[in-house]
Design a protein around this nucleic acid. Sequence first.
DNA 1: ATGGTGGGGTACCCA
Length: 264
Amino acid sequence: MRLLTWNINSLRLRLPLLERLVAERQPDVVCLQETKVPDPLFPLDGVKALGFPHVHYAGMKGYNGVAILSRLPFTPLTELPVWCARNDCRHIGARFETPDGPVLLHDFYVPAGGDIPDPAENDKFAHKLDFVDEVTRWFATTPPRRSIVVGDLNIAPLEHDVWSHKQLLKIVSHTPPETTRLQAWMDTGFVDAMRHVVPPSEKLYTWWSYRNRDWLASDRGRRLDHVWLTPDLIDRLNGMTVLKDVRGWESPSDHVPVVIELAI
DNA sequence: ATGGTGGGGTACCCA
């Protein structure tokens, strides 16, 4: 299975980019975040025309939204919690049947958290911390097996997941309250598949701000997008690629896709 | 310290 995850920042606007990506990379499964399309307006025909007859999505007007597109049949996960008592379209899941048993796939869009890294001052930051805490408690009570977590988790946990560890320690996405929480979530039973392939001593980014004159030259990136596997799947991992060149395409998302190859 | 650029949808909210 070739699995691709991407914060597309508007599915309708970037459907042509998705088409190019699919043609070049031929993923079996695509997990999207920030689709920014209400369900009644989801471009179902366009997505099916890309070769994905199996589609599951949860979207709303203006913000957020996640989608799973697949060549392979799957069953949508319907028993997922409502995080922070909000139906804000940040998580969907799928169950794939394989010769060795089912594999569960979770597609997350974690709240970005606003600008001020203080939950007392900033409701969005409080929501982000609460969201990760709730998700962590849920995975802790139902320890994952044969499971995959992907998505825009909006946290860059390691020193070399950001362009300047020291300068970003007080910047939302790389603060200790966030990075410790992301680790606690991962410690419910996952392995960081991207860092399994690329050593933690190497810089690795999936996002470059729009607010830079030259994203490539300044290279002030962060690794906000993640792929995690439970240990029972890690031996099936046959490769991981961050598609950095997609950031240089015409009218790009500020995030780039991550692809993994899994022998399942 | 500040402002820088995008998308949604049509005034601002969110990233």
